[in-house]
Design a protein around this nucleic acid. Structure first.
Lengths: 255, 255
DNA sequence: TATTGACTATAACGTTGCGTTATAGTTTAT
DNA sequence: ATAAACTATAACGCAACGTTATAGTCAATA
């Protein structure tokens, strides 16, 4: 069974011109032509078109799609699986944006104003990275060419934009909860739990955060104004509160 | 406090060139210029930029964004709420695609093959439109230059891509529910409710669907194979089931 | 059989949203 | 005062089609 351009266009919800274009650039050339030069698409062609549209949904450009589909090593199943994952990430990103809109709406309803930085957070994604990396660099100088630095380099170098949004929003959540619990004092159980999460967050995403490093990190939050300013966005005095809480945490977790 | 291009670019995660471009097309013109002609952006400008980026995330083009933001009737809060809804729909569409990929994966694993139409369903979004428009045209010929046609032209001409996604997914939902309730017979209460929703859907999105037109539409679902084939995708025999249900509905709503 | 209307083809310029030089003036740091 | 870093305008480049324009093809009808 073969289909003419218009039929294919309708089935797939695209324009005839698009099919012409794909033919022209060699992305999707119909299996047969009539004697008059009319394009005739086979089922296989439709399958390929489906793939193309999937990849397009991921914002790959036509050239990239062509390369992928034409690659002899192209494994359809594996591609679709990767695909699936990427789509999930896209969804996560969308959800992050939705939350951001929600926040803006809240702030418009007279609740706390968002800080400039916070407004752009879903679009941002490099700031925390930079801070953490700078700290890692300073760690290096303090402790020599430590593993922490190398690990950080390794870990962060492979992160995608979506990864950063994820990490950022996690960090955000922890900061906010800490800010909300400041009144209970740095040794409060809930606070200590959050501090534990914070250390885990760093370990998961940056480098193996040992007790010593963690203690040093707390100090730095107060000593280095770049950190202080950033952290205090979530609540006045949060940086020094975190330092205290982190110190207590380290005292409790000494071997 | 004012910011220079590079600062703004970094905060918002976009390029300087983009800011130049937005200035050029009048989408975002900085509040002040230095004597040397350097752009100086205010907090208000940053707010506007935030809006722009939000709308961009919805695939609105810069012109549309400009119109929305420049409209004196622009209500920021309402815009954001609409915004929020559109994002949700985009998410739904993504989820549909994810399910579709999942299905393809299943079929690759030897489970039941997907139908041609089913494969492309998530990408569609114009099909129903076309059918409805064609019907509107045929209505014109039957009833003379009826208002229905003109209304349809008017209504549909102003719809955006997102509107269509919206409308399509609504229609989809109704079809699916009808298909799920076919076993109860065309006169069942739930079915009749859905048929009412269907009429409302047409009235809301295409033209004022009177009882007579609605009855004719039911007939057409069976008489015209383009409709039949399309509708029966949702369930074998759905087209004629809908005709029966629509007839009953019209009988009950006769003045 | 001739014609008409719907569909097909190629060709080529138009459009959107910037990226990318190229060229030149400005500010800041040494 | 001289370089380094940043700013400006101008203008061409590019992807992925949309949009005419012009012409051939095919099926149905007069």
């Amino acid at each position: 069974m073969f289909y003419k351009v218009n039929e294919v266009a309708k089935i797939a919800g695209i324009s005839v011109r698009t099919l012409h274009h794909y033919d022209q650039i060699g992305l999707l050339q119909p299996e047969k032509l009539t004697s008059a030069g009319y394009r005739l698409y086979s089922e296989n062609d439709l399958d390929r078109l489906q793939q193309i549209l999937f990849f397009k949904e991921l914002d790959l450009n036509l050239n990239e799609i062509k390369e992928i589909l034409d690659s002899p090593s192209f494994d359809r199943k594996r591609a679709l699986e990767t695909h699936q994952e990427l789509l999930m990430e896209k969804k996560n990103r969308l959800e992050a944006i939705i939350r951001s809109v929600q926040k803006t709406l809240n702030s418009l309803e007279g609740k706390s104003e968002m800080s400039k930085e916070e407004k752009f957070k879903p679009f941002d994604m490099k700031k925390i990275e930079e801070h953490q990396k700078k700290y890692a660099e300073e760690t290096k100088q303090k402790y020599g060419q430590s593993n922490a630095y190398k690990e950080s380099q390794q870990k962060t170098s492979t992160y995608t934009k979506n990864d950063w949004e994820n990490i950022t929003s996690q960090a955000n959540e922890i900061y906010k909860q800490l800010a909300a619990n400041m009144n209970k004092g740095p040794e409060d159980e809930k606070v200590q739990e959050l501090i534990g999460q914070w250390r885990q967050h760093i370990t998961d995403n940056y480098y193996n955060c040992t007790i010593e490093i963690f203690r040093g990190l707390g100090d730095m939050y107060v000593a280095d104004e770049r950190f202080t300013a950033n952290i205090d966005q979530y609540g006045e005095g949060l940086a020094s509160f975190m330092r205290d809480a982190m110190h207590h945490y380290c005292d409790m977790h000494q071997e």
